[in-house]
């Protein structure tokens, strides 16, 4: 793939640029729409240049929300989303790295069984088990609470599986050297395994944070109190107004705001994230 063919170069660039445009154009539209006044959309033509109302749209959405659609201010919803996404990401990492540690480094009875049970839950995403999970959460009185929002989503096998695969690549001699050096299991975990998993943890954090942030169905199910609404489900409410035209400028301002935290997380952790995906540091 080191040949120098101008036509091939041009063609591949064309394909890439087309792809970028297809992905980026809707985002651009959202940003533009969020800077326009409320009446700019009635003409049926979508404006392509920014308007003067950015500040008022954003501050209105962030501070007050749209009372007509029964959604609280974005500030509150984003805080809720942040709490939920962070607890899911951190909780999942904490639980899965410990269970992977147990499965890889300890010989206990039913170890394989434990692994397979965890593994099988990979086939049961939230949507599949949503009704029984709802029943359990409701019976435990966790509806309309942060615990109810995050705990059922913390239990999952993906991260356990990834950490297990990573731990298997860590040479056994490292553990043996630590044993000879007088480190017990938890000390080995803290001093050796955790630092080695740093990039993997970062990569998983990014993925899981976005996963938690983008949850739609589950918060929709278990929250009836507007105080616990998350931003992704809130956007839907903004659009679904009765007997009126959606106020696209406000909706789009909410959309842009909802996009920001995942972007910030990805940008901030990009270097670690990429290293965690491609490099194994041993």
């Amino acid at each position: 793939m080191v040949e120098n063919r101008p036509w091939l170069n041009a063609l591949s660039h064309l394909v890439l640029i087309t792809g970028v445009v297809v992905v980026a154009f809707p985002v651009y539209l959202a940003v533009i729409a969020s800077t326009r006044g409320p009446n700019d959309f009635y003409s049926g033509l979508v404006p392509l240049l920014p308007g003067p109302h950015a500040l008022e749209n954003y501050s209105a959405m962030f501070g007050a929300g749209l009372s007509t659609s029964g959604a609280p201010p974005l500030g509150l919803m984003m805080t809720n989303s942040l709490i939920m996404a962070l607890s899911i990401a951190l909780g999942k990492i904490a639980i899965s790295i410990l269970s992977a540690f147990a499965i890889v480094y300890f010989r206990f009875r039913f170890r394989l069984v434990a692994f397979w049970i965890i593994f099988i839950t990979l086939m049961l995403p939230v949507e599949v088990r949503i009704l029984p999970t709802f029943k359990v959460v409701a019976d435990l009185g966790m509806l309309n609470s942060y615990a109810g929002l995050s705990i059922p989503l913390i239990a999952s096998a993906t991260a356990t599986f990834l950490f297990r695969q990573f731990f298997l690549t860590v040479p056994d001699e490292l553990m043996e050297a630590a044993r000879v050096d007088g480190a017990g299991p938890m000390k080995f975990f803290r001093d050796i395994l955790l630092p080695l998993s740093r990039t993997n943890i970062a990569a998983l954090f990014v993925i899981l944070f976005i996963y938690g942030w983008n949850q739609y169905l589950w918060p929709l199910m278990i929250t009836t109190d507007t105080g616990y609404y998350t931003v992704v489900m809130g956007i839907k409410r903004l659009v679904a107004v009765a007997d009126a035209i959606p106020q696209w400028n406000y909706v789009m301002a909410a959309v842009v705001l909802a996009m920001l935290p995942p972007v910030v997380v990805v940008v901030a952790m990009q270097r670690l994230f990429v290293r965690g995906l491609v490099e194994t540091e041993k």
């Binding site: 040479p171 001699e173 043996e176 050297a177 044993r179 050096d181 007088g182 050796i192 630092p195 540091e281």
Partner: peptide, 17 residues
């Protein structure tokens, strides 16, 4: 650790971090 021995491994087993 209680045996008062030190070991040198084939692949060195140095802590990479």
């Amino acid at each position: 650790a209680e045996r008062d021995i030190a070991m040198v491994f084939q692949n060195y087993a140095l802590y990479p971090h």
